[in-house]
Design a protein around this nucleic acid. Structure first.
Lengths: 118, 118
DNA sequence: AATACTGTTATATAATTATATAACACTATT
DNA sequence: AATAGTGTTATATAATTATATAACAGTATT
């Protein structure tokens, strides 16, 4: 689900936008051929300047995820394959962590550290 | 474990440094009273400019995690409590995901999206 | 006292990120 | 043909992030 960018996270807005759209692709919420909201709508959805939206779309285009049709819109270029088992693994983990009342940021810190120095 | 900053991740270096040190605190690898490497050593460890190190340390100090002794060094101010069960949950999840050959970035994207729109 | 190690402050410079704003170009509808 | 909706390009401005470099100030050791 596309949502407002977090302007206090320290992570550049255009990176957050790229990440959100990639996540939609991975979860199958955006599939090949689907049309993205218009650039000006995305501007409102993410609550950023139009140039910031374009920077994100340009990156996604360069990576082959989307393509633009001048005067028409942006479209998803290809599906991103992902094993449903992986999503289920993550869902279960997130569920457990939320039960333990841990916040997202802390979870991410531990997740990254464990991943890189297991 | 403190390691080089990823200069291509898009995430500001000083934020990465703050996150790495916080992760060490959460995992108990850095405990109350422990001394951090010197500012100039940290500069080499993270492979950034001294001002970038100071910016990160300043943030950690402002948040109460560390304190400075002029002419002596930086020290951990307090332990960060965290249920070991949480760490175990994350370890297991990471282990499963690595078995499935998924890369860190993709895992994080799904993790964040599932967390925020379960 | 001198030295070598700490943290601290300062200045200048550059690249990156983000905003505001305007105009242009293509497509589809009226 | 005119219009309204798309994407596209451009300019100016500001804040943030990061670097290089130098000097200063406190602490502990010799």
């Amino acid at each position: 689900m596309l949502r407002k960018v977090d302007k206090h996270s320290g992570i550049p807005a255009y990176i957050q936008i790229v990440n959100m759209i990639k996540a939609e692709l991975l979860l199958g919420n955006l599939q090949k051929g689907a049309q993205l909201p218009t650039v000006r709508d995305l501007q409102n959805i993410f609550d950023v300047n139009i140039n910031t939206v374009l920077k994100a779309l340009e990156k996604l285009k360069a990576e082959g995820y989307i393509e633009a049709e001048q005067g028409v819109g942006y479209f998803i270029k290809r599906d991103v394959e992902i094993d449903q088992k992986i999503i289920e693994t993550i869902r279960e983990c997130v569920s457990k962590l939320k039960d333990d009342r841990i916040d997202f940021y802390t979870a991410m810190l531990i997740f990254e550290e464990v991943w890189k120095n297991g």
